[in-house]
């Protein structure tokens, strides 16, 4: 038997207001770091909350917020067509500590915990831009040489091999020149 004891619209409105207030007071920078660490995204270009809800987590009330995230994700593959996890090189893979921290933050409600002082999510900081040393140490290893990565493929004839290299180099130059900003 259902007996209505209050106006459901009031509940919905107050819930909406609550999530709006939470969203307005989010530390977007910290949140961006959580996403980057947890989902290994190299760069997030935009982020907005779209939906909020109450959930039960380990016998406690928690809040769940869904986000629309715009991220730049590149895919690189070698001459054999094998996927290369280059993003993991550009963005250092999360250490066990940072991954744990990210997990902990993701599971915790964004609002203050009961009986505890509110604190921002703790995630290992990462530089927003890649340093020169990273470029040299990481990218210098990024030679598109199938012998170095993945399953070795059968040796193609010399002409074919050079032709593939030439095509790849042409593509790389075209890519660089296409991105030139005057």
């Amino acid at each position: 038997m259902k007996i209505r004891i209050t106006d459901p619209e009031i509940i919905r409105k107050q819930e909406r207001d609550l999530f709006e207030v939470i969203s307005e007071n989010l530390d977007w920078e910290a949140l961006s770091k959580v996403f980057r660490a947890r989902h290994r995204l190299a760069k997030i270009t935009g982020m907005a909350s779209r939906h909020g809800d109450f959930v039960a987590l380990k016998d406690e009330v928690a809040y769940r917020l869904d986000f629309d995230v715009q991220a730049v994700i590149g895919v690189v593959f070698d001459r054999s067509g094998n996927y290369l996890d280059v993003e993991a090189e550009i963005l250092e893979p999360p250490s066990p500590a940072s991954a744990a921290a990210a997990d902990e933050n993701a599971a915790s409600p964004p609002g203050p915990e009961r009986g505890k002082t509110p604190k921002p999510p703790q995630v290992e900081t990462e530089p927003d831009t890649i340093s020169l040393d990273q470029i040299i140490s990481n990218r210098s290893e990024m030679i598109l040489d199938p012998g170095r990565r993945g399953t070795p493929s059968p040796k193609p004839p010399p002409g074919q091999k050079i032709s593939k290299i030439a095509t790849e180099l042409a593509d790389m130059i075209s890519d660089i020149n296409g991105k030139k900003k005057r």
Partner: peptide, 25 residues
């Protein structure tokens, strides 16, 4: 000798992205 040029171009691409957007080959 074209072999190995990919390394240089990869770095050039990174430098263009991070430090010198006007760079081209």
């Amino acid at each position: 000798t074209l072999e190995g040029m990919g390394q240089l171009l990869a770095i050039a691409g990174s430098l263009q992205q991070e430090h010198n957007p006007g760079l081209s080959v």
